[in-house]
Amino acid sequence: MLEIPQSMVDTIVAHARRDHPDECCGIIAAKDGRPSRLFEMQNTERSPTGFEFDSAQWLSVHRDIDEADEDFHVVYHSHTMTEAYPSRTDIRWSLTTPFAHWLLVSTRSPDELEMRAYTISDGIVREEEVRVRAPEAGTSAP
């Protein structure tokens, strides 16, 4: 199960819609297992069929997360023509990336947005429930 605050879901959806028809990509860091910060990453491929983190930004964000003693919790990206399910490319890259969860959104429909989460371990894809956490009363969204 992957729990994400509503504010982060909103940010990811807006990011995916904004970058459509190209894929978007980003990171959710976590502290003690709870999502703490979201980083919208630049997709250097600027492509409808692929993403790659901008290498300079990734170095900076990696250092930031590492020094804050946070975890590389979620890598998210969008598919713009297909379902929100890991492609063979995603599975191949999952073997070397440090993230615990893969979150995919599909922007193929202008009306409905599909958001699904997976763990990919040794190439084995397992879907998991996405639970959206409502903002807590009296606190600002993270």
Binding site: H77, M81, T89, D90
Partner: peptide
């Protein structure tokens, strides 16, 4: 010198 895993992926054109 810093080594990092590159992070990439995306829909496979062949699957599309």
């Amino acid at each position: 010198v810093t080594v990092l895993p590159a992070v990439a992926g995306g829909a496979d054109p062949a699957e599309i």
